[in-house]
Computed example of a mutant assay.
Amino acid sequence: MAETPEMSSSRPYLIRALHEWISDNGMTPLLLVDADAPAVDVPRAFVEDGKIILNVSMSAVQGLELGDELIQFRARFSGAVKQISVPVTAVLAVYARETSAGMMFPETESDAEQTDEAGAEADATNSDTDTQPDDKPSRPHLRVIK
């Protein structure tokens, strides 16, 4: 069997796409961030239970950069401008404030890898023609794509 080439994480691409989708629909994009992850630079006074929600709408931030490795921008917190820096791997979700439509991500890349491995094992043992007792077709399953 040929070896599958290694691909980069899809997380930064999905973050950018969801940000654009939410914004294009006139809603407010929010990031749920693991504030305790390495290299996260956010105002600690706004962290609750190790997480922070950041409004990343164009009207709320200045200089927004949604990079492949890092998300950076300036925003006001209690009237003071702060430089925010969040590694893409620390983003747990991107969603619209108004509807909660969006996407959650695994807390770590290794969580995604474990899910992928479990999915690959399931794919190897299941097929579309598998049946369960009473000849019910097997339920489809979702696989996390990193």
Results as ranks from 00 to 15, higher is better:
104 M>E: 10
141 H>R: 15
1 M>N: 14
107 E>H: 11
43 P>S: 13
37 A>Q: 02
10 S>W: 04
15 I>N: 12
29 P>D: 08
11 R>I: 05
87 P>R: 00
22 I>K: 00
109 E>K: 07
12 P>F: 11
81 V>L: 15
145 I>A: 11
145 I>P: 03
73 F>Q: 05
68 D>R: 06
76 R>T: 14
60 A>I: 00
125 T>L: 08
80 A>Q: 15
40 V>L: 04
101 A>E: 06
107 E>Q: 13
63 G>S: 00
90 A>V: 10
49 D>V: 03
45 A>F: 13
141 H>C: 10
48 E>C: 04
65 E>G: 03
18 L>Y: 15
59 S>T: 06
11 R>M: 07
124 A>T: 06
39 A>F: 09
64 L>T: 02
95 Y>R: 04
41 D>P: 07
66 L>H: 02
33 V>H: 06
65 E>K: 07
42 V>A: 14
100 S>M: 04
41 D>H: 13
34 D>L: 13
90 A>L: 08
97 R>K: 04
124 A>Q: 09
145 I>F: 05
93 A>S: 12
128 D>E: 05
132 Q>E: 12
40 V>Y: 01
106 P>G: 08
27 M>Y: 11
87 P>Q: 02
86 V>A: 06
76 R>F: 14
34 D>I: 12
83 Q>C: 01
22 I>C: 02
17 A>S: 14
136 K>E: 11
71 I>L: 09
117 E>V: 02
58 M>P: 00
96 A>K: 00
40 V>A: 04
22 I>R: 02
112 A>F: 06
96 A>T: 00
110 S>D: 08
50 G>R: 03
75 A>P: 03
100 S>K: 05
118 A>R: 11
124 A>W: 03
36 D>F: 06
2 A>C: 11
18 L>W: 15
56 V>I: 15
6 E>W: 09
107 E>N: 13
99 T>H: 01
73 F>V: 05
6 E>T: 11
54 L>T: 11
38 P>V: 01
92 L>P: 04
146 K>P: 03
76 R>K: 14
140 P>V: 10
16 R>Q: 14
69 E>Q: 04
78 S>H: 14
50 G>C: 02
25 N>V: 01
110 S>F: 12
7 M>I: 11
110 S>K: 10
113 E>H: 02
95 Y>P: 01
74 R>L: 09
138 S>C: 09
125 T>E: 06
115 T>H: 03
22 I>P: 01
146 K>G: 08
115 T>K: 07
15 I>T: 11
61 V>W: 01
31 L>R: 01
